[in-house]
Amino acid sequence: TYVQALFDFDPQEDGELGFRRGDFIHVMDNSDPNWWKGACHGQTGMFPRNYVTPVN
């Protein structure tokens, strides 16, 4: 499953995934309602669910 970033996200903690608005992120785990795990630009980490939108 892929999502697209609605906003820039700069990691604040180790293990978070940084990205820029418009980036596509491969979702690896969406079991938590607020923080998902994904991959983008060769990196993996957690990111806030409300920063992304589903891609059809």
Rank of each mutant, 00 (worst) to 15 (best):
12 Q>T: 11
55 V>H: 11
15 G>C: 09
50 N>F: 08
32 D>W: 03
53 T>A: 15
2 Y>V: 07
52 V>Q: 00
26 H>F: 11
56 N>Y: 06
37 K>H: 11
17 L>R: 02
39 A>K: 13
23 D>Q: 06
38 G>H: 02
30 N>D: 14
50 N>T: 14
43 Q>F: 08
29 D>I: 01
14 D>F: 08
46 M>L: 13
50 N>M: 09
20 R>A: 11
32 D>F: 04
53 T>R: 11
48 P>Y: 03
42 G>Q: 08
51 Y>W: 08
55 V>F: 11
37 K>W: 07
17 L>F: 06
13 E>F: 10
47 F>Y: 01
37 K>N: 05
26 H>N: 14
41 H>Y: 08
38 G>M: 01
1 T>F: 12
3 V>I: 03
6 L>H: 05
6 L>K: 15
49 R>K: 09
7 F>A: 11
42 G>D: 09
40 C>W: 03
14 D>W: 06
48 P>K: 09
20 R>M: 10
30 N>A: 13
27 V>G: 00
3 V>G: 04
30 N>C: 13
2 Y>L: 09
24 F>A: 06
26 H>M: 13
17 L>D: 00
44 T>Q: 09
33 P>S: 11
1 T>I: 13
11 P>K: 11
50 N>W: 07
40 C>R: 09
49 R>I: 05
34 N>V: 15
31 S>F: 04
45 G>L: 03
43 Q>Y: 07
18 G>Q: 12
27 V>M: 04
43 Q>A: 08
35 W>K: 09
56 N>S: 11
22 G>Q: 05
38 G>K: 03
52 V>E: 02
51 Y>I: 11
16 E>F: 13
30 N>W: 10
12 Q>H: 08
54 P>W: 12
23 D>C: 04
41 H>D: 12
47 F>H: 00
39 A>Y: 11
4 Q>M: 08
6 L>P: 00
5 A>C: 04
45 G>M: 00
34 N>F: 11
40 C>A: 14
23 D>E: 09
48 P>F: 02
1 T>L: 04
45 G>V: 02
2 Y>N: 10
9 F>A: 06
38 G>R: 02
18 G>K: 13
24 F>N: 06
16 E>M: 15
3 V>A: 05
33 P>H: 06
13 E>G: 13
39 A>Q: 12
30 N>T: 15
36 W>L: 11
